Simulated assay, not measured.
Amino acid sequence: MPHADIYEHFHPDEKSFVDRAWEWVERAAELHQVRRTDFLDPRQAHILFTLANKHPDVAIRLDGGGEDAERRRAIVAPDYRPLEDEPIGIGVLDIVSDDRRIGELDHGDYLGALLGLGMKRDKIGDIHPREDGCHVLIAEEIGDFLTGHLRQAHRVEVRASVIGLDGLKAVRPELEEMALSVASLRLDGVASDAFRLSRAKIMDPIRAGRCRVNWKPAEDPSAQLREGDIVSMKGFGRFKVLAIDGVSKSGRIRVRIGKFV
């Protein structure tokens, strides 16, 4: 178990992951074990690095299958072990269809189809939807199951196969830009405008723990947002604070955000 003071740096909801990550680090440092994790989001990767830095005998490698990957698997190992040749265990699920409606499917449709088969989110990396199909980074151990069971995504019949990482067609996420004029950079104020909800209605999901800022739980509606922050709200989507463009004559703050579509 980590020392009690370590928990002070993390949100209480992150305690279970902190405990797991600390165990990986300790086993690498003291028992010379090598651990390959499931896919981690950027916040989890940050936690793992923070804990590993407390052990000088531990090395970490992150890989999500592509240069700009958001979700990545990690290899945690003793620092004397070269990690470049350790298999990262990632495959590309190639989803295609004869139905032209496949071009209308988005990130959420594909993720919903995979989770609907009983897959854990941790086994799924980045999702790259295209007009003619989709590439999904997956833990290679679930590849056979998915190719045998994935038959539909949001009422569109599909086929799936697993290909190598060299065949990945990565798609940069599209951002729908919006210009906002807000009284302050409070989380509830910016989020209510971004999701077109009243200030009162945005409070409940924030206080209920359904909001994250930079993948970290955020339950304080008055938290101040900064340029570059990524805000996600379960059930509503997510947006990025692209720029803070100054203050208008009336004293309101001009903010540009990009909603992930």
Rank of each mutant, 00 (worst) to 15 (best):
A4L: 15
D5G: 09
Y7I: 09
Y7H: 14
E8V: 12
H9A: 13
H9T: 03
P12V: 08
E14V: 13
K15M: 06
S16Q: 14
V18R: 00
V18I: 14
V18F: 04
W22Y: 10
W22S: 10
W22M: 06
E23N: 10
W24D: 04
W24F: 15
V25S: 07
A28K: 01
A29P: 01
E30L: 11
L31C: 08
H32K: 15
R35N: 08
D38Y: 15
F39R: 08
L40Y: 02
D41Q: 11
P42K: 09
F49W: 14
T50F: 13
T50I: 02
T50E: 01
N53T: 10
P56L: 10
A59P: 00
R61D: 11
L62C: 04
G65I: 04
G66V: 11
E67G: 05
D68I: 05
E70M: 07
E70A: 07
E70W: 04
R71C: 00
R72D: 10
R72A: 09
A77W: 05
P82Y: 03
E84F: 07
P87N: 12
I88V: 13
G89K: 06
V92L: 04
I95M: 08
V96F: 07
V96E: 02
S97K: 04
S97Y: 03
D98W: 14
R100Y: 15
I102L: 09
D106R: 07
G108L: 06
Y110M: 07
G112N: 04
A113F: 03
G116D: 09
M119H: 02
R121D: 03
E131M: 13
D132M: 05
G133S: 08
C134K: 01
V136Y: 00
A139T: 02
E141K: 13
I142L: 08
G143N: 06
D144T: 10
H149N: 11
L150H: 01
A153R: 02
H154I: 01
R155K: 04
V156T: 14
E157P: 00
V158W: 03
S161K: 13
G164C: 08
G167V: 05
K169H: 10
P173G: 11
L180R: 00
S181V: 08
A183E: 14
A183V: 04
S184Q: 09
S184N: 12
S184L: 06
D188P: 06
S192Q: 13
S192K: 07
R196I: 02
L197T: 12
S198V: 13
R199H: 03
A200S: 14
K201V: 04
D204P: 00
D204H: 13
D204F: 04
P205F: 04
P205T: 03
R207H: 08
R207S: 12
R210L: 03
V213A: 06
N214S: 03
W215H: 12
P217G: 09
E219T: 14
E219M: 11
D220I: 14
P221C: 10
S222N: 14
I230V: 14
M233P: 11
M233F: 13
M233S: 08
F239E: 05
V241P: 01
A243I: 08
I244S: 04
I244K: 03
S248T: 15
K249V: 01
I257G: 01
K259Y: 02
V261A: 05
V261T: 05
V261N: 07
